[in-house]
Write a protein that binds this DNA or RNA. Structure first.
Ligand SMILES: [Mn+2]
Ligand SMILES: [Mn+2]
Ligand SMILES: [Zn+2]
Ligand SMILES: [Zn+2]
Lengths: 136, 136
DNA sequence: TAAGTACTTTATAATGATTCTAAAGTACTG
DNA sequence: CAGTACTTTAGAATCATTATAAAGTACTTA
């Protein structure tokens, strides 16, 4: 079974109709060896090059947020004017190269155990994320 | 010597003329017991209540970014449409309460030592910041 | 397979935080 | 005080994102 069939299955089983636009976007996002960190604009440019048929910007927004809601994409916290997304939806940490403004995934084994000693009454920890800023 | 005189000194010694607008903004930001995490809109609302004379939104933007450049304020990484600032400019960590969307400072003693085992050739670590998402 | 329906895509407009502009006002220097 | 550089301001411009609504498509059921 090839990727395309897998994407179709995955979409259908998520209640998302496997349209040709969504399948193209799946290919752009998930047919990669490494984690992909991107903005809507990055994705739009990639799709323009790759696909013969144009996918509207509105559809790219719709699809990215649909995928985010299904937990196939994750939003990343950064101080930029654009929103970043990550194909690695696991709880993980990042280097942020301040020269290139590029994100690099850290494996959990790259980071010693993080111990949070303080508790807030009535609140549970949902995630712990580290951002390590680096530069030349 | 009162706060106002201190603000004036600090501004002047930073090459920023101590205008009445900047002094009002200093009071709103720094006459507090605890760290203040805010958006431009938060600050604007506070100033409207506090001050008799209106400070234009443009001036609030100008001043906040001037203070950020002087390292009297820090920008915080969050996935929101608005930019957040922090009167605590030290390298420190946060809880983010996802119910209220409020930030809480963690003291360094609240967090065990963070060890980053991986190195990127030619790059130095500039800061390490942890965001701990919490909710009910 | 055709009709019916809900979902999807799309062009386009609206929104809203932020940035820009340029003119009027103010702080400092000599 | 006069001169200058800095500052404030209203309003316009920008631009990422979100909303709108009409046309197109996928799926269901007969
Ligand atoms: Mn952002
Ligand atoms: Mn932000
Ligand atoms: Zn990542
Ligand atoms: Zn803080």
């Amino acid at each position: 079974m090839n990727n395309k069939e897998n994407f179709i299955k995955k979409l259908r089983s998520s209640g998302l109709r496997p349209t040709k636009q969504r399948i193209e976007i799946c290919k752009a996002l998930y047919e990669r060896k490494k984690t992909f960190h991107f903005t809507i604009d990055d994705l739009n440019k990639i799709l323009r090059k790759k696909s013969k048929e144009k996918i509207s910007l509105a559809t790219i927004y719709n699809t990215v947020y649909a995928f985010k809601n299904k937990n196939y994409l994750k939003e990343i916290s950064l101080n930029t004017n654009k929103t970043y997304f990550d194909t690695n939806v696991s709880n993980h940490h990042h280097f942020l190269d301040e020269n290139s403004n590029r994100l690099i995934d850290l494996k959990n084994s790259d980071v010693g155990k993080v111990k949070i000693k303080r508790k807030i009454p009535g609140k549970k920890i949902k995630s712990i994320e580290i951002l390590v800023r680096i530069s030349d």
